[in-house]
Computed example of a mutant assay.
Amino acid sequence: MNSRRDFLQKLTGSALAFSLLPRYANSSILHMHAYEGPVLRVALMGLGSYATRVAEAMQACQKAKITGLISGTPAKLKTWQGKYNVPDQNCYNYETFDAIRNNPDIDAVYVLTPNALHHDEVIRVAKTGKHVICEKPMGLNAKEGAEMVTACKAAGVKLLVGYRMHFEPNTLEIIRMRNEGAFGKIKFFQGLSGFRIGDPKQWRLNKQLAGGGSLMDIGIYSINGARYMTGEEPLWVTAQETKTDPVKFKDGVDETIQFQLGFPSGAVASCLSTYSMNYLDRFFLDGENGFAELQPATNYGPIKGRTHKGELNYPHIAHQTRQMEEMSDILLAGKQPIVPVDGGEALKDLKIIDAIYQATQTGKKVELSAL
Rank of each mutant, 00 (worst) to 15 (best):
216 M>S: 02
284 F>S: 10
197 I>L: 01
150 T>D: 06
229 M>E: 10
209 L>M: 03
218 I>A: 02
283 F>M: 12
256 T>W: 00
21 L>E: 07
50 Y>D: 10
364 K>S: 05
71 S>Y: 09
327 M>K: 05
152 C>A: 12
328 S>L: 00
239 A>V: 00
46 G>M: 02
69 L>P: 14
240 Q>K: 05
310 G>V: 13
188 F>L: 06
90 N>K: 12
179 N>E: 13
194 G>W: 05
90 N>P: 12
92 Y>F: 10
345 E>D: 15
46 G>D: 05
298 T>K: 06
6 D>I: 13
75 A>H: 14
189 F>W: 12
342 D>F: 10
59 Q>D: 06
139 G>P: 02
47 L>C: 11
108 A>P: 15
16 L>G: 10
95 E>R: 10
234 P>Q: 13
115 N>P: 02
155 A>G: 01
251 D>L: 12
327 M>I: 04
241 E>I: 03
295 Q>W: 07
21 L>S: 08
354 D>E: 07
291 F>N: 05
319 H>R: 08
42 V>A: 08
39 V>L: 05
371 L>Q: 13
161 V>S: 01
171 T>Q: 13
265 S>T: 14
127 K>F: 03
100 I>G: 14
217 D>H: 01
103 N>Q: 07
242 T>G: 03
73 T>E: 13
231 G>W: 05
268 V>R: 06
176 R>V: 00
68 G>K: 10
312 L>C: 08
116 A>M: 03
155 A>R: 02
161 V>C: 07
188 F>D: 03
11 L>H: 15
101 R>N: 15
223 I>A: 05
42 V>Q: 09
57 A>I: 12
112 L>S: 09
352 I>Q: 01
214 S>H: 02
337 P>H: 08
350 L>H: 02
242 T>F: 01
229 M>K: 09
85 N>Q: 14
328 S>G: 04
154 A>C: 02
224 N>Q: 09
211 G>M: 09
282 R>M: 06
56 E>L: 08
221 Y>R: 00
25 A>S: 12
282 R>L: 08
63 K>H: 02
30 L>I: 11
96 T>D: 05
294 L>A: 12
250 K>E: 07
254 D>E: 09
106 I>V: 14
359 A>F: 05
329 D>T: 05
66 I>D: 09
90 N>C: 15
235 L>D: 09
244 T>G: 00
160 L>F: 07
189 F>P: 07
21 L>Y: 09
327 M>R: 04
244 T>K: 06
336 Q>F: 05
131 H>N: 12
86 V>L: 13
44 L>Y: 06
175 I>T: 08
227 R>P: 10
303 I>L: 01
280 L>M: 07
308 H>L: 01
2 N>K: 14
